[in-house]
Simulated assay, not measured.
Amino acid sequence: MLTGMHIAVIGGDARQLEVIRKLLELDAKISLIGFDQLDHGFTGASKEQIDEVDFSDINAMILPVPGTNGEGQVETIFSNEKVILTEEIIAKTPEDCVIFSGISNSYLDSIVSKNNRKLVKLFERDDVAIYNSIPTVEGTIMMVIQHTDITIHNSKVVVLGLGRVGMSVARTFSALGAKVKVGARKSEHIARITEMGLEPFHLDDLSEIVSDADVCINTIPHLIVTASVISKMPAHTLIVDLASKPGGTDFRYAEKRGIKALLAPGLPGIVAPKTAGQIVANVLSQILLEHHKREEK
């Protein structure tokens, strides 16, 4: 249990509701910042303005998946209040306060490191990424069905990257009857693609591979679907880019060529916010329980 632990949940979307619910089940004391328009009443959680919170009493701080923007503003779906996380706020927290975010940026990294606090980036963890690949794949299937006029069955699908998401995408589209080719650079990934019964290719050969592709799904977070690659695609090819912003596709050239290209990061929070929230909540609570046990010793 997290009895005696005071946690500030700052901003976020519907996923955070699952996090709040889980932490309250574990008997944590919760301060909600950026939730003043939330209709749901959570017994044991108090809605507060950021300048009302006594941060010297906070054991953990939970930010939304994106963390902050470059100026420290935190996304608040359930409030019109402008919430800014500053270096001064972090400085007020106890030395052992842990800050959680999905991802980070130079601003958040800077204000946390200047105060020598611990920042946990949940989306860099293998377990979170693998669990999240499930709603990501479902969202990708939904997009492909919506934006093509053919069945997935028997379609030619090119998947770029065999990371945690790429592997799930390739396996699932193959299970739906697509003819899947998977591009990678590492020899061990080429071996794994072969073992999965799929057709591997080296990313250097991408331009030739896409010449008959119905769908191209990218999971690699740097420019890989270039203008020269797009120029070799049939006019009907659909590009779905799952990499974090700005993606790995030359969207300007795709539009110029009339090829539909969709940037779709963050699909779990869009297609299955409850499940995505439970994934974050379960991993987060496990980390907090371990942290709480260490503090009690």
Rank of each mutant, 00 (worst) to 15 (best):
I217G: 14
L122Y: 11
K186H: 09
E138I: 03
V144R: 09
V271I: 14
V157Y: 08
N59Y: 00
D204N: 13
L160Q: 12
D205V: 05
L2E: 03
A261F: 00
Y131W: 14
E25A: 13
V83Y: 01
G266Q: 05
E208S: 08
P234G: 06
S155D: 12
D54L: 12
N80H: 13
R185Q: 07
K179Q: 09
T172P: 04
M5L: 11
L203Y: 13
A129L: 14
E295L: 10
T140V: 12
T237D: 09
V74L: 00
E188L: 05
D54H: 09
A45K: 12
H189Y: 06
V229S: 05
L17K: 12
A264T: 10
N116I: 02
G163V: 07
L223P: 08
G266P: 13
K245I: 15
G248P: 04
K186Y: 05
N132R: 11
K47Q: 06
I152L: 04
A178D: 02
I152C: 10
F55C: 06
I287Y: 15
Q37N: 13
Q73S: 03
Q286V: 01
V169K: 06
A254W: 00
G161V: 10
G44D: 09
Q146C: 05
N59R: 05
F123R: 13
K156M: 13
C97V: 04
I270Q: 11
P246W: 08
A45L: 11
I217V: 14
D127H: 06
I84F: 02
L223I: 13
C97R: 02
V53C: 05
R192F: 15
L288K: 02
A8N: 05
S106W: 00
F55K: 11
V215P: 09
V182F: 10
I134H: 01
K22V: 04
T249I: 03
N282P: 08
S106F: 01
Y131I: 04
D241F: 06
N282W: 02
T226F: 15
P64N: 08
E75Q: 10
H147C: 08
V158E: 08
D250P: 02
E87H: 04
I111D: 06
E195W: 10
V271G: 11
L242H: 02
S231N: 14
